[in-house]
């Protein structure tokens, strides 16, 4: 565990907490893509199956359980408790366009042709693009509340920090995982445009509004 990895995990945790608090405090999930949240739930469930097979550390197990639980809670709030506030019409990204290519890619490019390994690989590929329905929703409505921007910034920073972690681990431990690195780079690139808007607008107290 190095500082980049820890910062990445904490950023990920912060993002999830911000999202849950936003929905809970405002009693609304307006501006949040339920489809991205469904994809994240699939990511956690397919990746953290190893909770049952491999013990790594208490930290590792607790974080996995927290991510799965928080993801389930988010889906419950969006699709059950505050369903009336869900932005159906704008959340129109077709997730099969992400799911199917990720399944195919995981079957072709993986470390090992076993069920666990393919599910892990699928979850890595899917995570890299899971934010697209959310970014699509923001681009459709043309704006995002500040709290939603903070959520997206924390969530995007997490994988960017993991990239630093992988560089560090490559140098310090000669450890690397090409699938994770490739997907992590793609994931971070998808946030770049948002990062730019966040830094130039939201941090200066302005609302995140896309140019018309």
């Amino acid at each position: 565990m190095n500082i980049f990895r820890l910062a990445g995990d904490l950023s990920h945790l912060l993002a999830i907490i911000i999202l849950l608090l936003k929905i809970w405090k405002t009693r609304s999930c307006a501006g949040i893509s339920g489809k991205s949240q469904v994809l994240f739930a699939i990511v956690y469930l397919t990746r953290y199956l190893d909770l049952f097979t491999t013990y790594i550390s208490l930290y590792n197990s607790i974080m996995k359980i927290v991510f799965i639980a928080a993801s389930g809670a988010t889906l419950y709030l969006m699709y059950v408790k505050f369903k009336a506030t869900y932005d159906h019409n704008h959340d129109s990204f077709r997730i099969e366009f992400l799911l199917i290519p990720c399944v195919i890619l995981a079957l072709i490019i993986n470390h090992d042709f076993t069920v666990m390994e393919i599910l892990w690989t699928f979850s890595i590929y899917l995570e890299s693009v899971a934010i697209l329905p959310q970014l699509f929703l923001v681009s459709k409505t043309g704006e995002a509340e500040s709290i939603t921007s903070h959520y997206l910034f924390a969530l995007g920073s997490y994988r960017a920090l993991y990239l630093l972690n992988w560089i560090y681990r490559y140098m310090a431990e000669s450890h690397y995982d090409l699938i994770a690195i490739f997907a992590g780079v793609v994931q971070t690139i998808l946030y770049c445009d948002f990062f730019y808007l966040y830094i130039t607008k939201v941090l200066k107290g302005k609302k995140l509004q896309l140019p018309a």
Partner: peptide
């Protein structure tokens, strides 16, 4: 350098 696939990350 050998690629390691041990999944100790989240």
């Amino acid at each position: 350098v050998k690629e390691c696939t041990k999944k100790d990350e989240l």
